[in-house]
Design a binder for these strands. Structure first.
Lengths: 340, 340
DNA sequence: TTGTAGGCGTTATCAA
DNA sequence: TTGATAACGCCTACAA
């Protein structure tokens, strides 16, 4: 390994001179410019690179943040890719490195948690979905001096900074859009209280009465949390069989939207002419589906970036508080937005 | 920060004793079992975690590998997610950490390259697409003692170990499948020599004559490399307008498959009855499209895992050579596989 | 059975 | 203008 010492010996100068020259720390004095160039050239020639462990040991800073993500997520939605890109871009901006780990079970999470300390990283980002995370463990880690920022829908604990997506707004934005598109009987596929609240809010603001019969509560029909296309399909089927009249469907994922549209098409209802549909995630496939899908974009990239920025501030001992990211409406054909 | 020293002082014992106890290195001698427990308990109570910088400095091992990925990729295909999962799982198995960085330009790549050395990581994984990568730089890094494994279709250089996907096989597997499904006039959307070779190979093995007119060479029609749904659409349109008769289409992505099917549907050709279509990537949306898509899965997760395993071997000074991963056929309705 | 010393590569301070 | 030295936290060999 090429060290400062080896460069210095090669040139017959002292180690500390090489260090100063390479770091541009020569104080007010002048080293011979020729010597400076010589040293720099030699270091480059030998392929010298600073040993980050030594720097970290000395400075007490790792220049690295840890990222623990639950490995699931709605595959194909682009959420994880975008989240990672957002984190990566911010990390790069702050000249830090990112140490990424996935976990799939509580054991794996606790296994990772062992390494979460100042001796290994300057801060920790935890996110994707709350499953398997131990709030006590995170508090313990933070109390041991490692700043943490989580990326969940809502904060796990008042003392742990969180960057979430406003799920109330997710529900509201989609519903509001369909209302503006002329829908008056909007059904909702739901498995999240906040989104239901947003749905109700939008209806209320438009003076439309809320009816419980217009909501398909996923957990009453499926063991899992839904989000798959089969849920969209079943929900629409359920509404039809129960004689619920509707001209709009607010789903909770793009997959559900696909399922809903597949079923509507099968029973010869036209989208968006007869029924308008909007989903959540703005998945990449939205734009090239036979009927392009309108969707509420949750902006995971922004979430990752903001979370990283906040973590950097926390590392710098600044006070930060939890944040909610606003979702964005993306209008395409399934809600009658872009017909030509 | 909790250090060995602080634990030792708290207990009034020596630092080295704590070190020995926590590492289970007490040799043949016996420390009082009670004392061992006491030390362990105290360390846990104080939240002691080994300082990885200090260990790395001492051992010369970072216990960390770097991953440099180009940030593009076919969004929504799940390739990047799966690649990362594969790398992550293997990294975890080897008790290493993964330092992830994305780059989008040559400058960014070279910016990352500066940090690629033994003083920061034990090895380096580079992949996704070859764009902006400097082969000379990688060679320089490797010559400076950092083992590298790339994840590209083909090796950049004989001295840099590569884990690729056999693109010849990708072309062959899809074509062969359509032949087995009864197709005899198979057209091909193409922008990759290896896949074209695979396409020809499959035809040859089946005794079907290759005709250049059956291939839509993407670069003759588009400035970019294609892979989007518009390419599939245009390609099918092109074949129709040129009077090419076909009963099967081998595309080079699932997006192209969607575009092709969209166009075929528009001109009232039925998939898979009249025309069978197969794509590449086995993207998550394949299974819930109105017509579920058959696809050739490139197994990026396996690629990432194998690349990481090989890198670990390289780090251990073992000789390794480049590897090609076999693609896998996934049959669904678009090729007439799963009709019910 | 327990404690001490040296060194990993770097930087900052102080001395020459 | 340049060089020597201590310190960061840990581990290993060796001394007591």
């Amino acid at each position: 390994m090429v060290t400062l010492k080896s460069v210095a010996e090669e040139l017959g100068v002292s180690l500390s001179l090489v260090s100063k020259v390479l770091n541009g720390r020569m104080g007010t004095t002048n080293v011979t410019p020729a010597k400076v160039e010589l040293i720099k050239a030699k270091a480059k020639e030998m392929g010298y690179v600073k040993n980050s462990s030594a720097v970290a040991l000395l400075s007490g800073k790792q220049d690295s943040i840890g990222t623990f993500l639950h490995c699931s997520g709605v595959t194909g939605s682009g959420i994880m890719e975008n989240l990672l890109m957002g984190i990566s871009a911010s990390t790069y901006r702050h000249h830090k490195r990112q140490s990424l780990c996935f976990y799939g079970s509580k054991e794996e999470f606790l296994g990772l948690a062992k390494y979460a300390s100042r001796g290994r990283m300057d801060g920790l980002l935890v996110g994707n979905i709350t499953q398997f995370v131990s709030c006590e463990k995170l508090l313990e880690i933070q109390n041991n001096g490692l700043p943490i920022v989580t990326m969940y829908d809502r904060p796990l604990h008042p003392e742990i900074t969180n960057v979430g997506i406003s799920q109330v707004r997710v529900g509201e934005v989609g519903t509001k859009h369909l209302i503006e598109q002329g829908c008056r009987n909007i059904v909702n596929i739901n498995n999240m209280d906040d989104r239901l609240e947003g749905y109700k809010l939008a209806l209320k603001k438009a003076g439309i009465k809320y009816s419980k019969g217009n909501v398909f509560f996923v957990n009453e029909h499926f063991a899992d949390n839904g989000y798959g296309s089969h849920v969209g399909e079943q929900a629409v089927k359920y509404f039809m069989e129960n004689g619920v009249k509707f001209d709009g469907v607010v789903t909770q994922s793009d997959r559900e939207t696909v399922g809903a549209i597949n079923y509507l098409t099968k029973i010869e209802l036209r989208v968006p002419e007869d029924v308008k549909v909007i989903g959540v995630d703005n998945s990449p496939y939205c734009e090239f589906m036979p009927i392009p899908l309108s969707s509420v974009e949750q902006n995971p990239g922004v979430q990752g970036g903001v979370a990283t920025d906040l973590l950097m501030q926390k590392i710098d001992k600044q006070n930060v508080s939890s944040v909610l990211i606003e979702p964005t409406l993306v209008v395409r054909e399934s809600s009658g937005g872009n017909q030509d």
